[in-house]
């Protein structure tokens, strides 16, 4: 496979471009998407024109509602919501309409659409521009939830999301946009939804890390590796449907689980993973399951306070030590 080098932002832009070239029913709508607040979609309008690449008024409810209706009538819209925090302004069309349409119509209608939205703290943007809301959507039957952490995954998963016949919530991370890595040029390259990736093999402890926590976990694995602790890192990549098999296999091997998400831990991704292991692999555990994430608080504007709540490498190291009984 021929490889290029790109950032996550670039990989997302590539995936959109390729899928829009491939299928005339793929369109993109959102606020200021022709300019792109984080530059992700900047310039794409030049190729696709304003019929397919549409700036909308500030109307999140209408953006998602429009995508749902268009998806029900033959299109494959990608709708962008500028910050995950603003997903709260369009919860009805996501949760009651898109997610339930196939079911309510007895399979008559499908809603092949993607909602792209960046989250994550660390920019001093305050409580209403910093949240990571992945776990909210994991609990909504009918939705798929994807959360990539590398350029290659972002590209492969977004392409699959666009081709999927269900509504997919595609959660990006602002701080990860400029992480770079190898990305296949092949337009047929995709990564199936629902497959986790084992980013690093290890024997002592499994860290299941999501989105912004993945690079942090990789750094910690290096650090602990030097101390003789062998860490396995699994990135689920798709949070629903979750690749429980890969996760179970890993925990059965290491006997220890640390979960790492950036969002609030209460009812979070880690809670779901902990429940999964407690139910399905209890016998294999050699230590306590430890969750890393944001405590039950909001993100402050004051950056030191903000970083005190964002889970980081130190929190991960502490969690691993606790999991392996080296506290």
């Amino acid at each position: 496979m021929s490889m290029g080098f790109n950032t996550i932002a670039g990989a997302i832009s590539q995936a959109i471009t390729e899928e829009m070239r491939r299928d005339a029913n793929v369109v993109l709508i959102g606020e200021d998407v022709t300019t792109g607040i984080f530059g992700v979609t900047a310039g794409l309008v030049d190729e696709f024109g304003t019929d397919r690449f549409c700036d909308t008024p500030i109307s999140e409810n209408a953006i998602i509602g429009c995508a749902v209706g268009a998806a029900m009538t033959g299109m494959r819209p990608i709708a962008e919501i500028m910050f995950q925090d603003f997903l709260t302004c369009c919860m009805d069309p996501i949760v009651n309409q898109a997610a339930k349409m196939s079911y309510m119509s007895g399979g008559t209608f499908s809603v092949p659409m993607v909602v792209r939205s960046p989250g994550g703290a660390g920019l001093g943007a305050g409580p209403q521009h910093s949240q990571s809301l992945a776990s909210w959507f994991m609990g909504v039957p009918g939705l798929k939830v994807v959360s990539p952490s590398s350029p290659i995954d972002a590209k492969g998963l977004l392409k699959s999301a666009i081709r999927d016949n269900n509504p997919v919530i595609f959660l990006e991370n602002k701080l990860l946009y400029f992480e770079s890595g190898e990305v296949p040029d092949d337009i047929d390259f995709t990564i199936p939804l629902g497959q986790a990736s084992v980013l690093r093999e290890g024997d002592d402890v499994t860290i299941v890390a999501v989105s912004g926590m993945v690079p942090r976990a990789l750094r910690v694995a290096d650090e602990l590796g030097a101390e003789g602790v062998s860490v396995e890192i699994v990135d689920p990549r798709t949070l629903y449907p979750l690749d429980t098999e890969t996760i179970l296999q890993s925990v059965k091997k290491t006997g220890r689980l640390v979960t790492a998400e950036e969002g609030v831990m209460t009812c979070g991704v880690g809670a779901e993973l902990a429940a999964l292991i407690a139910e399905k692999a209890y016998d294999c555990l050699d230590g306590p399951i430890v969750r890393v994430g944001t405590p039950h608080v909001n993100y402050a504007y004051n950056q030191e306070m903000e970083w005190a709540t964002i889970p980081d490498e130190q929190d991960l190291v502490r969690a691993v030590k606790k999991a392996i009984g080296q506290e």
Binding site: D85, F86, C89, G124, A125, G126, P127, Q128, H129, N298, A300, Y301, N302, M305
Partner: peptide
């Protein structure tokens, strides 16, 4: 220091807050 530019609020002055939304 919790709110910052987008959230400045002042109860005594009836300022129900700047808003990020």
């Amino acid at each position: 220091g919790r709110g910052g530019s987008m959230h400045v609020a002042a109860f005594d002055l009836g300022i129900l807050g700047a808003n990020g939304i």
